[in-house]
Write a protein that binds this DNA or RNA. Structure first.
Length: 156
DNA sequence: GCCAACGTTGGC
DNA sequence: GCCAACGTTGGC
């Protein structure tokens, strides 16, 4: 079992939005970065853990946990001319962009802000905290995932 | 709203 | 294959 962190701007799609979905499940469409796509397409497996992160938020924070409930399949929004993320280079026979489905598990009582995360020794090497890091879908080490969940419980 | 750090595109 | 120009991300 692997662990991941997925970013979303809460003004566009928040963890509350996820929780309000039927079955608390959504497809993670719109990712248009190759590295992020590769993680979703090749490495995400059913049951993997996901940290839900609010970017461009005040404060930016890890706000809860989700899980992978469907492995990768083509992101059809890339074929939709009216979609914001339309990409004419992606076709149904040769899809360029892929997505997974995630389901809400838990919303932390208190989001864990970036500055708080930086104080956790176990997170020293975390991709999220690397200067200049922008990856919207990124792998997380088990010890990092566990440390964050533990901290969330402590702060609750 | 600013802007540094990235990623992508396309001319050459 | 280089790299300048451009677009995007995301903290602040």
């Amino acid at each position: 079992m692997k662990y991941w962190l997925m970013k979303s701007e809460p003004s566009a799609y928040s963890i509350a939005d996820l929780e309000a979905e039927p079955n608390k499940t959504t497809c993670w469409d719109g990712v248009r970065n190759y590295q992020a796509r590769n993680f979703m397409r090749d490495d995400m497996k059913l049951g993997d853990g996901v940290l839900f992160y609010h970017s461009n938020a005040n404060p930016p924070a890890v706000v809860g946990v989700a899980e992978i409930v469907r492995e990768s399949y083509p992101d059809h929004t890339a074929w939709d001319e009216s979609d914001k993320h339309f990409d004419p280079k992606s076709t149904p026979t040769n899809p360029r962009w892929w997505m997974v489905d995630i389901r809400h598990i838990d919303t932390f009582a208190t989001g864990i802000g970036l500055d708080r995360l930086r104080k956790v020794a176990a997170l020293k090497e975390m991709e999220l905290l690397r200067k200049g890091s922008r990856l919207s879908v990124q792998p997380v080490r088990k010890k990092e995932f566990d440390a964050i969940v533990k901290l969330a419980k402590k702060l609750a």
